[in-house]
């Protein structure tokens, strides 16, 4: 702050409160809607304050779901999402760590070629190669399975570059000392590099967990059986049904449940989250 200008400070508060309200509005409306009964929405406008059906709505969705639409219980879809998010996050971290280790600590023929192949994943988002990728997964018999949901998503140039960056800043003396003490490459990797990159791994985990949980197109394509639906992809199927028979309270309860886990991760691990976000874009 250069000089004290109370009016500008006041204006800043006004702007921010406005911003916070705008940002929070959709979630507020969903949260309120999820606590009413179905016929509360027949009156023409959405209620703006909480109803008393919260326990009923949430326990019904978690336990049985809307059975008429052939949807599995939301609790089950959340479990699928959890497996997928954990699998994607841990898988990305694991294979990126080893690739970055190979690229930084070894000299071997075609090293740059390997680097460019990894880089190429960045230029081929799943959205632009939907049909052929679907076909590959189908040919491998991986439709409707956790490996099918997870493995095609775990190749990651960003994570590899992040760990490469981290490893490049490790002093060479560490490697020398380890070698003099007779440690082989894998021992060095496990006992020195991994512990030193713990915070980076945690930060990346936060980002990749959110990424995995929020996947939409991929699960939508490859989960044709309802028992494999993830919640983010499942909620849309639910809303399609709702167009004819609106059960807004249930849909909004599902929406709230779909956003809850990643939201908790961001709120309670905000520092790691910000670190991960900034680092993966370097």
């Amino acid at each position: 702050m250069v000089e004290n200008r109370p009016f500008l400070n006041f204006l800043a508060h006004v702007v921010l409160i406005f911003g916070v309200v705008v940002v929070a509005l959709p979630v507020w409306v969903a949260l309120v809607a999820s606590t009413h009964e179905s016929n509360a929405f027949l009156r023409g406008t959405v209620p703006m304050w909480f109803g008393d059906q919260a326990v009923h709505n949430y326990s019904r969705m978690l336990g049985t779901g809307i059975s008429t639409s052939g949807m599995p219980p939301v609790g089950w879809m959340m479990f699928n999402s959890l497996i997928m998010a954990l699998g994607v996050a841990l898988g990305k971290i694991a294979i990126s760590l080893t690739s970055a280790f190979a690229i930084v600590y070894f000299r071997f023929p075609f090293r740059m070629a390997a680097f460019w192949i990894i880089f190429s994943t960045m230029m081929l988002p799943v959205e632009v190669r939907i049909v052929p990728t679907f076909k590959v997964v189908a040919d491998l018999g991986m439709l409707n399975s956790y490996p099918g949901l997870i493995i095609p998503l775990i190749a990651s140039a960003t994570a590899t570059f992040l760990f490469r960056q981290v490893f490049l800043t490790m002093p060479d003396e560490l490697t020398e000392a380890a070698r003099i003490d007779g440690a082989g490459p894998m021992k060095f990797f496990r006992d020195i590099l991994l512990p030193l990159s713990r915070t980076n791994m945690a930060a990346l985990f936060v980002i990749m967990f959110i990424y995995g949980w929020n996947q939409y197109l991929w699960p939508l394509l490859i989960t044709t059986g309802s028992d494999m639906y993830t919640i983010v992809a499942g909620i849309k199927r639910m809303s399609t049904v709702a167009d004819t028979d609106p059960q807004w309270n249930y849909i909004m309860a599902t929406a709230v449940l779909a956003m809850l886990p990643p939201l908790l991760v961001v709120i309670f691990m905000q520092r790691l989250f910000v670190k991960g976000l900034v680092e993966t874009e370097k």
């Binding site: 940002v23 929020n214 939409y216 983010v232 929406a255 961001v266 910000v274």
Partner: peptide, 13 residues
């Protein structure tokens, strides 16, 4: 804190 949390919400949601 009040402004960063929408990042956690899936575009589909």
């Amino acid at each position: 804190t009040l402004l960063v949390w929408p990042y956690a919400i899936a575009p589909a949601v």
